[in-house]
Design a protein around this nucleic acid. Structure first.
Lengths: 135, 135
DNA sequence: TATTGTTATACTCTATAACTATA
DNA sequence: TATAGTTATAGAGTATAACAATA
């Protein structure tokens, strides 16, 4: 079945990610959170990006802060806290992103045209998913 | 990135599975284990199929046994225990498989030819993965 | 000595509920 | 009253290590 295949392959993709970030010594959830920070972000927007509960982001941000990778700054709306990369955080994020990209080159045996097909189909699927298409 | 898309879509596929089996009142891991039992299987082979540690299968089998869905019988090699569906287990498995199949119809908006493309590419990816192709 | 399965335990990831502060 | 974030807690899912029985 299609779903089962998708899940197996995604598991491999996750394992790839884990391998790629392992050398940096960050637990996977922290690595994911760090990579989410392409710009200063509220706790909530991080939660949305990671598809998790905001309460969970609190812990992630705490740990990134302990490691000196981010700081929290109050936003204009003072309920909001902006999570901002420190220079060290920025630098680590760059290096990690590159490692993930290099390591993540998917499916070297799949020819380029097939990969384009795959991307198109996946895009369509994600779109359906966002629109909540019944399946 | 391709991996990220794959993971998002697989998450949706997992959620689909969860929805499909929810009416049967089995926790997800038990549902997966039950569906793995297309034939009498050793603990180890179940672990292989589920891609988990054998020690974890012990707990799954215990719970399926408590629910009267399987029994354990010693194999010819008496180290081996064969997990075998009871009539109730067989019947439940049939119904669940059907529900999963129906619910799991993936991507209704994807035309049939695209779905064929997708299946082909996924098959290739799984093959690479089994062969341990560097990625 | 290697393999099957089990036990006891512990870990990772994550959510829920109740709370505080601001809006 | 509704929203952002936090705290404390709890749960699901799963692995590790040590072990017993069999090969």
């Amino acid at each position: 079945m299609l779903s089962r295949m998708l899940i197996r392959i995604a598991d491999r993709a996750r394992a790839n990610f884990a391998e790629a970030v392992a050398p940096f010594g960050l637990p996977i959830p922290l690595a994911r959170a760090l990579l989410a920070l392409h710009e200063p972000s509220s706790m909530r927007s991080i939660a949305d990006f990671l598809a998790c509960d905001p309460s969970y982001v609190t812990g992630l941000a705490d740990q990134l802060e302990e490691r000196g990778l981010v700081t929290r700054q109050p936003g204009a709306d003072r309920r909001i806290k902006l999570v901002i990369l420190t220079p060290a955080g920025h630098e680590l994020r760059e290096r990690m992103a590159e490692a993930v990209y290099d390591h993540g080159r998917f499916a070297p045996t799949i020819p380029a045209d097939k990969r384009v097909q795959l991307r198109e189909i996946l895009e369509q699927l994600l779109e359906d998913q966002d629109k909540g298409v019944r399946r």
